[in-house]
Design a protein around this nucleic acid. Structure first.
Lengths: 165, 165
DNA sequence: CGCATTATGTTACAATATAACATTACAGTA
DNA sequence: TACTGTAATGTTATATTGTAACATAATGCG
């Protein structure tokens, strides 16, 4: 299965829909895998998607609190750990921030395009990149366990926006 | 110019030599570029290389202190900023740690092989990886400014070591 | 030298993440 | 249903990583 959606959502896309879509996927996936997507974890995952761009843990903590839940840092970090272990969320380590995974359930490692102008992140799943990396590493006798690729730059929309000014 | 050194140094390589080599390179580069490689910066760079694997900022701070210098966090972070801005050091963001750059002076972005077993890091400079990434991003209208690739796994030596047991 | 600029010292604090132990909820079973 | 072991969450305290802001010292240059 491949995703042909433009990786950076258009400005007027139906964001509510994409959030609920991601949540439904996650629910189905956890169901199928016998994972406990508890209320807290569900809530954190929803917040992450709702933010629509990488969110910090303490930002999530604030948002949880505003939603009326008593929460401390471990509350958030434990939920994040669960979500990351199960491929529902990725950490953008160059930003200490977290994003929902667009291909949850697939076996994949993460590749991100991070727009410096709008702050949005798009997740790639480019097989060619993966295979070139594997090849390069294997040539050196290195066995790859996992990897992260974080690409900063400017997305298409922001380029056009800046031309309009 | 290309480097054909094995990226993970052999166990018995002359480490003192590789440190002094890196320092000489850095000195020459700064000279040539009119950059001020002050005593502090030189000292920090030397410590980074001497550690022989990624080092945390506070670890460097300790080491500086043990060498008799009065230092506080900003001391180290400012030196690191200088060294990173000028391509003499890279930050491994998945580890909050810093390593000397093996190709200082070249225009390149960083690709790291991080051995989970011995903790050592090798820096790649694989043009093919770079071009595949650029192509993948450009196809999506994304303009790449810079990127980091951090690959975790097991290096050749550690694989063999574990077979011997 | 005298001045402007850059680098470093110093203090305080912000931001991110974890340890350790107490309590609660949950799933399976007698 | 009540019992029990496990997993999840609550709670407090603290570790780790990184910056802000302002003072002082060193450096390069006219």
């Amino acid at each position: 299965m491949t995703h042909n959606n433009p990786p950076f959502p258009s400005a007027d896309h139906d964001h509510k829909h994409c959030v609920s879509h991601a949540l439904k996927n996650a629910e189905a996936y956890c169901q199928q895998q016998g994972l406990r997507l508890t209320k807290l974890r569900h809530q954190v995952l929803e917040l992450i998607w709702a933010n629509h761009q990488p969110v910090g843990a303490y930002e999530l903590l604030d948002q949880l609190t505003h939603e009326g839940r008593k929460a401390a840092p471990p509350t958030v970090y434990r939920a994040l750990d669960f979500l990351m272990e199960n491929g529902l969320v990725h950490r953008i380590s160059s930003r200490n921030a977290y994003v929902g995974c667009s291909h949850a359930g697939h076996d994949h490692t993460a590749q991100f395009l991070i727009c410096e102008s709008c702050g949005q992140v798009a997740e790639l799943d480019n097989a060619q990149i993966g295979s070139v990396i594997a090849k390069g590493a294997n040539q050196l006798g290195f066995t790859v366990a996992q990897w992260t690729l974080e690409i900063s730059g400017t997305c298409d929309q922001c380029k056009h926006r800046s031309q309009d000014e």
